[in-house]
């Protein structure tokens, strides 16, 4: 058993086998593995993206909520302000209305007083005149002193 040329033939055969494997066996295998690696990477990145999306939307929701709450607070504040304004206006209107009513009532009362005074004056004058008449009936004739009596009546 020595080195012989058969080894060369075997080496050639082996070289062809290696070439065949490199050409037709290895590439599909590596392709499959690369494909698999890619799918794994894609899946992981998709998951990561989903997580980020979720975070972003959560943040947006929080923002929206905060904004809505702020708006609500603003609206409430504005409404309170308006309500106060309305109440104030109403109070002012009521005050002036009251004052007007009071003034009117006072005017009417004054009028009544004046009228009562007139009536009273007339009655007092008539009483005085009738009194004076009763006193003076005997001494004065009413015709002769009528102008005097009228001037007294005017003085009241």
């Amino acid at each position: 058993m020595e080195f012989n040329v058969s080894l060369l033939g075997q080496a050639l055969t082996f070289a062809i086998l290696v070439w065949f494997t490199m050409k037709f066996v290895w590439p599909p295998l590596t392709n499959m593995m690369d494909e698999r690696a890619k799918r794994i990477a894609d899946g992981l990145s998709a998951a990561e993206r989903g997580r980020q999306d979720l975070q972003a939307s959560e943040k947006r929701v929080a923002d929206e909520l905060r904004k809505a709450r702020q708006q609500a607070a603003e609206i409430v504040a504005g409404a309170e302000k308006r309500a106060n304004l309305i109440v104030d206006e109403a109070r002012v209107a009521a005050d002036s209305e009251g004052a007007r009513i009071i003034a009117e009532a006072k005017g009417r009362i004054d009028l009544e007083v004046l009228r009562a005074k007139d009536v009273l004056r007339e009655q007092v004058a008539m009483l005085a005149v009738s009194g004076a008449e009763k006193i003076l009936r005997r001494e004065i004739d009413p015709a002769g002193h009528a102008d005097l009596l009228a001037s007294i009546k005017a003085e009241f």
């Binding site: 058969s6 033939g9 050639l12 055969t13 062809i16 086998l17 065949f20």
Partner: peptide, 22 residues
Amino acid sequence: LIALLPWQVQWILGAPWAIFHI
């Protein structure tokens, strides 16, 4: 047996057999 063939022609039978052997 293939190794007993002349070395120039070994691959003709050897290579297909090796590939089939995979």
